[in-house]
Simulated scan of single mutants.
Amino acid sequence: MTGKRNDVDPVEVERWITARIAKHKGTPVFVELGKRLAARREKYAHAQQASLEFLKELFALARDTVAAEKAAAGVPPEEQGKRRSPNSSNPSRAKTPPIIVENVVNEVDEVVRAVRFSGWQDTYEGDRLVQQALRKTLYIKFKIRDNDVFIRALDYIREYY
């Protein structure tokens, strides 16, 4: 792949979640999401959570944040489905995720970009191609046979690609 790559990594996803939650300070559902994010950071910082579990929870938290925003009508139509990575950094952010998580996310990003096409989410063939590429990446390349990770990653891809 030539040119500048727009890889998605867990740190970017975490920053994105933090920025989105911060837009809704004081709203109970977003306060709860913020507490969940803080708990994930704490677990991860104390090495009580495996990389795979961290990845699962990060995908679930990203999905729940988008759902909460949509429910609160806080996402304008032109931003739905866009991938965003705010440039603001959070000084309270935990250590960066292990390299395996970053490698998985980068590889998934690369294969999805290679097989997707405009409007792929609205066609059976497009969805099937993305699912096959994701399965091949997770199951074969990284030996991650956890269906929960697959489902969460697929939900994330459907939302942001």
Rank of each mutant, 00 (worst) to 15 (best):
Ile144Met: 13
Glu32Val: 09
Arg84Pro: 05
Gly126Lys: 12
Asn87Arg: 05
Pro97Lys: 02
Val8Phe: 01
Ser89Cys: 01
Thr18Ile: 02
Glu14Asn: 09
Arg128Thr: 09
Ile140Pro: 12
Phe117Cys: 07
Gly26Leu: 11
Val108Ala: 01
Arg158Gly: 12
Ala67Asp: 05
Pro77Ala: 06
Arg36Trp: 03
Pro10Tyr: 02
Arg5Phe: 03
Phe150Val: 12
Val108Ile: 15
Val115Ser: 12
Arg63Met: 05
Lys95Asp: 12
Phe30Asp: 01
Ser88Cys: 02
Leu61Pro: 13
Lys4Glu: 05
Val101Arg: 00
Arg15Pro: 01
Phe150Ser: 14
Lys95Thr: 10
Glu32Trp: 06
Ala45Met: 09
Lys70Cys: 00
Val31Thr: 14
Gln131Pro: 03
Asp109Cys: 15
Arg128Phe: 03
Lys23His: 08
Asn6Val: 00
Val29Glu: 14
Ala47Cys: 05
Arg145Phe: 05
Met1Phe: 04
Leu55His: 08
Arg93Val: 03
Tyr161Asp: 04
Ala133Ile: 09
Val31Met: 05
Val115Gln: 02
Ala114Phe: 14
Ala19Gly: 11
Thr2Trp: 05
Gln121Thr: 08
Lys25Thr: 12
Ala38Tyr: 01
Ala94Leu: 00
Arg145Ala: 15
Pro77Ser: 04
Ala73Val: 00
Thr2Ile: 06
Ala114Lys: 15
Tyr139Leu: 13
Lys35Ser: 07
Ala19Met: 04
Leu154Asp: 04
Val108Pro: 00
Val111Met: 08
Thr96Cys: 01
Ala133Pro: 11
Asp127Cys: 14
Ala62Ile: 05
Arg83Asn: 06
Asp148Phe: 00
Ile140Phe: 10
Lys143Thr: 10
Ala62Thr: 08
Asn90Asp: 10
Pro10Ile: 07
Arg36Gly: 01
Val66Phe: 10
His46Tyr: 02
Ala68Gln: 13
Asp155Cys: 02
Ala50Lys: 13
Ala73Tyr: 00
Lys141Glu: 14
Gln80Glu: 14
Glu57Asp: 14
Ser51Thr: 13
Gly119His: 10
Asn106Phe: 06
Val75Asn: 08
Gln48Cys: 00
Arg36Gln: 07
Glu57His: 11
Ile140Gln: 15
Arg152Val: 11
Glu53Phe: 02
Ala71Ser: 08
Val104Cys: 08
Asp109Trp: 07
Val101Lys: 01
Phe150Ile: 09
Asn106Ser: 07
Asn6Leu: 12
Thr65Ala: 07
Val101Ser: 13
Asp64Pro: 04
Ser51Lys: 07
Glu53Ala: 08
Ile157Pro: 05
Phe59Leu: 13
Leu33Asn: 11
Val8Thr: 12
Val112Ile: 14
Glu12Gly: 06
Arg145Thr: 14
Val111Thr: 10
Thr96Tyr: 02
